[in-house]
Amino acid sequence: MAKDIRIALLIDCDNVSYRSAEGVLEELSKYGKVNVRQAYGNWKSEQLKGWEEQLHPLAIKPIQQFAYTSGKNATDSAMIIEAMDLLYGGNVDAFALMTSDSDFTPLVMRLLAEGKLVFGFGEKKTPMPFVKACSQFIYTENLEKDDETQTEGDALAKRKVPRAKLRQDAELVKLLRTAVEQSADEDGWSHLGRVGQYISNNTSFSPVNYGYKKLSDLIRASELFSVQMRNDNSVVYIRDARTR
């Protein structure tokens, strides 16, 4: 994935915590430049006080959205309109939607149909249709920091899923083994980069949801695979540890 892609971050402040905002931006910086940062909500609401304190330090533009009709989420509509304007403006390569609302699932599907990457960030209450629709989805609880001095790595380390639990996760084990099998060369070994590409093409999986910064870290922690370093230790190959 190119490191210079332009990303638009749109935040539904009604449905996600401000505590993970910095972590989300740090995560997105791995993939490109977040050149659009907009947060939507009714800024007269006391519930958004925590978000207000994040806007200036993180260079996020607040977009005022009044609740014109009781029971209707005007924030959703405003975000969808902005996403479509950005899509047709042609100035962004990928979208990041920070929300726990499944109402955005059709928008994700539309953006994907236009060939755009869609990074999803939401709380663990986020419905699965939205989670699975995204190119990659990360639960924001994994990106929250306890204080201003804590790094993303420190926050993840506290949430690392141990080896035993990784191996007990049948869905995870099946995903990893299938990806390795489908990416294998004739000798049975799989280039880790191709394994990661297979996973990203077929699921919204992210190692961050298990407390690991990189796929290679999770692979090693699981001990489900043999690991072989090639090309002066610059390239990682893996194979199912059950293979002899």
Rank of each mutant, 00 (worst) to 15 (best):
R167S: 04
T149R: 13
R167V: 08
E171D: 15
E181P: 00
A157E: 12
A155L: 08
A184S: 15
R159Y: 00
D185E: 12
T178Q: 11
L156N: 02
E171R: 14
Q150E: 14
G153T: 00
L156F: 00
K145D: 06
K160Q: 15
V161W: 09
K160Y: 02
K174N: 12
A170W: 00
L172M: 03
K145F: 02
K158E: 14
R177D: 11
Q182F: 07
T151M: 08
V180D: 10
G153H: 00
K165T: 09
V161H: 08
Q182M: 11
D185H: 10
A155N: 01
E148L: 04
G153V: 00
D169H: 02
T151V: 06
T178M: 10
E181V: 02
A170L: 12
V173R: 06
K145Y: 03
E152T: 04
L166W: 03
T149Y: 13
A164Y: 05
E152W: 10
D146Q: 14
T151E: 09
V180Y: 04
L156G: 04
V180K: 02
R167W: 01
Q150W: 03
E181I: 09
K158L: 14
L156D: 01
K160A: 12
G153W: 00
Q182H: 07
T178R: 06
L175W: 10
T178K: 06
E181R: 10
V173A: 09
T178W: 05
K174M: 11
K145M: 09
D147M: 05
Q150S: 11
A164R: 14
A184H: 05
R163A: 03
T178D: 13
R163S: 04
R167Y: 03
A179I: 04
R167A: 11
A164I: 12
E144D: 00
E181W: 01
D169N: 12
R159V: 03
L175S: 09
K174T: 13
R177Q: 13
E148P: 01
A164C: 03
T151P: 11
R177L: 11
Q150F: 01
A184W: 07
R159W: 08
T149S: 14
K160E: 07
E148T: 11
L172V: 07
K174E: 15
E144I: 14
T151F: 08
K165D: 15
D146F: 02
D169E: 02
D146W: 04
L166H: 00
D147I: 00
A170R: 13
K145W: 05
E181L: 09
T178N: 10
D169Y: 06
T151A: 05
Q168C: 04
P162F: 05
K174I: 05
L156C: 01
V161K: 10
V180S: 06
R167H: 02
A179E: 10
T151S: 15
K160T: 03
T178E: 13
Q182T: 06
A170P: 05
E144Q: 08
D154L: 06
L166R: 00
T151D: 04
K160C: 10
K165G: 01
E171F: 12
E171Q: 14
E171C: 03
R177G: 04
L156I: 06
A184C: 09
Q182L: 10
E152V: 06
V173N: 08
E148F: 08
V161N: 07
L175V: 10
L176N: 02
L156Q: 05
T178F: 02
R177K: 15
D147S: 11
D169Q: 06
K158A: 13
E171G: 12
K158M: 13
P162M: 07
E181G: 00
R167M: 08
